[in-house]
Nucleic acid binder design. Structure first.
Lengths: 186, 186
DNA sequence: AAAAATATGTAGACCGATCTATTGAGAAAA
DNA sequence: TTTTCTCAATAGATCGGTCTACATATTTTT
């Protein structure tokens, strides 16, 4: 794989990631991905021989790793779990608002869209959530928290719920309320 | 509106509701709605002159009212909020599992799909969530709970998060964990 | 070092399928 | 008879995917 090839590939993945995040699987039409990345149609099937599903799967994995890295960074920096989750909510709320309420959870939309119709992509999404959950659980266990597994799942559910509600209502309010609830929970 | 007309209309709404719930906006193709309801193409545009968006909007409102009624019934029956939320989670988990992991939140998928591209439907979804939230808040306030607003939003976020995670992972486990977290929260 | 051969990408025309929407004739109900 | 509603044919756009020709590197051969 030459230099130019990788560049095009990365551009296409980035374009797909952005479109998926704001409009899900069906919101990321191949024509739009191509237009956004400036690549012609043939290049897509050169770099992603299995077509759209392969492109979407790789874009989801990339997005998943980005959030994982974010959680890891915050987890290393924060004094305790409560502070970590607090700043995670802040970062996500900022990201959502500054994007014009279009960038919420990068996998939730696809997860719900395809969970009943595309087993491969469903598993990709499940794996992403699993990795986030275990990152949270690790930090909770390190803090000596009782029931780290239950709490990690609950925090993930709260964050996903907040992302959904805030996006639909176009308001940071759900984040603020959830943050206070998390403080009470931990 | 005659008897036969209403029947067709209701059948179409029901078909749309089911398809939307398992595959979202794009999962509910008009051909599928028509096939599932046994109605011809022309009838759809007779009963829903504004086309697909009107059909989807009414289906979402119907689904919203069904869940509102469920929450209201449970809220009237349960001894306290913790018990109410517990049985709500049970009912939703049963519904999800028995449907083959296809019936989660009836509005979440559409909400995420269209929140950046269809202002009308976005507002319909926002209104549905608002009504559920206020139903929860009412029960919390009646129980004399401190910060009923924060807690209602947090519970709704938890429930939505659990529906998402359980559906993607095809497991009741997220419900069980969230239920224990809710018990700790209340 | 020059030339030939091979691998790596680019480029867009084109295909069948599917999508939502429109139309108008005619059956059923009031 | 007039309104209500059904029914299928059809339109036009867009979808994901395939195909072949072409350009640009990289390697091999002479």
């Amino acid at each position: 794989m030459g230099e130019k090839g990788t560049q095009t590939r990365v551009r296409m993945l980035g374009a797909a990631q952005g479109l998926i995040e704001s409009g899900g699987y069906h919101g990321a039409g191949l024509n739009q991905v191509l237009a956004a990345s400036g690549a012609p149609r043939g290049s897509l099937y050169f770099h992603f021989p299995s077509g759209k599903d392969q492109l979407v799967a790789e874009a989801l994995e990339r997005a998943g790793q980005e959030i994982s890295a974010l959680v890891r960074d915050l987890a290393d920096a924060g004094p305790d779990t409560a502070a970590v989750v607090g700043s995670l909510l802040d970062v996500l709320a900022d990201r959502l608002e500054t994007s014009g309420w279009s960038k919420g959870c990068p996998v939730a939309t696809v997860a719900l869209e395809v969970s009943a119709s595309n087993e491969t992509l469903r598993q990709v999404c499940a794996e992403v959530y699993r990795s986030w959950e275990s990152a949270l659980e690790g930090r909770l266990a390190a803090d000596g928290h009782p029931a780290p597994q239950d709490t990690a799942t609950a925090i993930l559910a709260l964050v996903e719920g907040a992302l959904l509600l805030a996006r639909v209502q176009r308001s940071r309010e759900p984040f603020a309320r959830v943050a206070r609830a998390v403080a009470a929970l931990l």
